[in-house]
């Protein structure tokens, strides 16, 4: 069979078939089209970033974050975003798994020349995932990990003095979230999950530059660029959707973006307050992490999930607590109008 020319440059020989469009392209064009799409996502509309912003890349050592670190550095230079990039990694304390991936992140730090901060569950909460699993078993450990991780990222970013966190969530993740939220009836999240940047009242902005990038293409990019990453198993495989129609994943995201909710639903969502114990954002008196921690400390497991005993702002004696959450104090132009008021108030209280 004669070699097919690349559908984009029509000269070089086509080496790969793009999962997203089915086009057959050569390696260089693949890199270019992948990077250009991410660039388009970043600059679309008003743009995700502002010049001079400090941006932390949530780095797990996995392919998403490694490729993200690589692509962002490249684009930052190529298009002069003027961003200050950092690598932020969370050590959950899972022996074997995390040790190796952290090594990868350290390598990334050297490869891309970006400052790295590692925050561990142990130093933050006093518990590692290994110990949590020992305590609660394997069924709900994901809840703990998720809650702790989210806070950890925010805290790490605050310590770095960063305005913005970016994560490697890709199109497959978002499509999955859209469908899942429809099926679970989670209206509130459905309205938010396709936004490229999310920000709640006091948490740091989080963005997903890989919003339109297919997971398979991220893997291909990493493979062809020979980027080091720690491979984890892919649990969810949207293979069937992709087999029937390659654009299905992006189509789901398009639908998700078009969804508009009933007004009354939006009003009913809980107002946010801060945790009485550690100062993190919460919809109840105690933030989820503190509640879970209390449960762990007391040797309970699942009951913590129901937040029935979360009512005192002082932890029982002898329990470890999470250090106070210091809100970042740089009131830059990146703050939306309402945020400025809050930040000003926060400074005054201090």
């Amino acid at each position: 069979m004669p070699p097919t020319p690349c559908s984009l440059c029509h000269t070089a020989r086509a080496l790969v078939k793009r999962p997203k469009t089915g086009q057959q392209v050569c390696k260089d064009c693949f890199f270019e089209v992948f990077e250009t799409e991410v660039h388009n996502t970043i600059v679309e509309g008003k743009g995700i970033f502002e010049r001079g912003e400090k941006v932390a890349i949530g780095a797990s050592g996995g392919k998403d974050s490694t490729v993200l670190a690589h692509v962002l550095s490249v684009l930052n230079k190529r298009y002069h975003y003027g961003l200050d990039l950092f690598l932020l990694s969370i050590d959950e304390g899972i022996t074997g798994y995390r040790d190796d991936s952290l090594e990868t992140v350290k390598q990334n730090q050297i490869e891309y020349g970006l400052p790295l901060k590692i925050l561990s569950y142990n130093e933050l909460y006093g518990w590692t995932m290994d110990k949590i699993v020992e305590q609660v078993g394997r069924r709900n450990n994901c809840t703990f990990c998720g809650v702790f991780r989210r806070q950890a990222l925010d805290r790490g970013a605050a310590q770095l003095g960063v305005d913005h966190i970016v994560t490697g969530h890709n199109a497959d993740d978002i499509a999955e979230t859209v469908l899942m939220n429809i099926m679970r009836g989670d209206i509130a999240r459905l309205g938010r999950c396709t936004a490229v940047t999310t920000q709640s009242e006091d948490t740091i902005k989080r963005s997903k530059p890989f919003k339109y990038a297919y997971e398979k293409e991220i893997v291909m990019y990493a493979y062809f660029k020979k980027l080091t990453y720690f491979s984890t198993e892919c649990i969810y495989s949207p293979d069937d959707l992709e087999a029937i129609r390659p654009s299905a994943i992006v189509d789901i995201i398009h639908s998700g973006e078009s969804f508009q909710l009933e007004q009354s639903v939006q009003k009913g969502m809980k107002a946010m307050q801060t945790c009485l114990r550690c100062g993190y954002i919460s919809s109840n008196d105690l933030c989820k992490a503190c509640a879970l921690l209390e449960g762990l400390e007391a040797g309970l497991d699942r009951s913590a999930l129901r937040q029935t005993q979360a009512n005192s702002s002082n932890a029982p004696t002898g329990h470890r607590t999470i250090p106070m959450f210091e809100r970042y104090s740089n009131v830059g132009a990146s703050q939306p109008a309402e945020g400025i008021e809050k930040a000003v108030q926060a400074i005054e209280i201090k």
């Binding site: 797990s60 990990c145 989210r150 490697g168 969530h169 993740d173 999955e176 892919c234 649990i235």
Partner: peptide, 10 residues
């Protein structure tokens, strides 16, 4: 989607 990458808000 591995355990550590639970999307925002979940």
């Amino acid at each position: 989607m591995s355990c550590g990458d639970i999307p925002d808000g979940l």
